[in-house]
Amino acid sequence: MSTASTNAGARRGMKIDLHVLGPILALVALIGIGIALNSNFLSYGNITNVLARSAFIGIIAVGMTFVITAGGLDLSVGSMAAFIAGLMILCMNLLVPSMGQSLGVILIGIAVALAAGLVAGAINGLLVTRAGIEAFIVTLGTMGIYRSLVTWLADGGTLSLDYGMRELYRPVYYDGILGVSWPIIVFAIVAILGEIVMRHTAFGRHCAAIGSNETVARYSTVAVTRVKTLTYILLGCLVGVAVVMYVPRLGSASASTGLLWELEAIAAVIIGGTVLKGGFGRVWGTVVGVLILSLIGNILNLTDMVSPYLNGAIQGVIIILAVVLQRKGSTAT
């Protein structure tokens, strides 16, 4: 047995490379296609657009990486984002008459968004860990609840931020430092911190251990309940952060805000090499996954080669291909 494993180890060494390189190769290939199809692809404006629009899903997907690595799942993030955005706009609009169009209102709005994210994440987490309900069911339920709540808050229409406030808050999405816009900066910070936490802290290691085998983690005196709950809270907070960056973009929230974000985030996580059933996660892979998804849309918009009716099909094919490439590298061992 032990002699046989030497051999397996050696073989795996080579395949890990493929496993690691898979998503990066896909990203490079997409960038190559983009350059070939449109000379504006590499322009400052386009790159900024793609990165900034990736930020919302990206920030959420970083949190999703932890949840999935620990063996969980959260389907509610898209609706949660819409609900938090609605709540934030409503609070800010309510404060304008008393506080005027001031920085204070924005700060309170941000605090509301982050707090709401924390609470929403905690609700998901506690229902999963304390009540012992399947994550899929819990978050399917909260997904419907948040989506309805935002529709209700908006009376079926659109919640729009006070016009003056919008002008004041706008720079948070559109401005930046040294030509790098804020969403990109925040996304980068979240991604880097996420990568460090996942790879270099006890929390990240505990997530992987729980996802790999929850019983072993429990017998190894890992605080399973606490760690799992924390992954959902972390994700909720990151949804709050994403909303803080989203609201200044168009200053509105409606029932269609954040539609299907959960699926995009989950797809990005899986494309990035995190295992859907948990036990192994990598944040940098998730970032690559998010960029791949954004680039597909961007490239399709930049050309007329493919009928726009087929956009979804192309995304689907690329998602499946990316995952198949990686599985090829890992199943053989």
């Binding site: 251990a209 072993v216 429990r218």
Partner: peptide
């Protein structure tokens, strides 16, 4: 089933209960 994470390395298994020390 309850002792070791079979898909993880020796190190990750060894230090799991006392990871806080590292």
């Amino acid at each position: 089933g309850a002792g070791l994470l079979l898909d993880k390395s020796l190190t990750e298994n060894l230090t799991l209960p006392v990871l806080h020390r590292y």
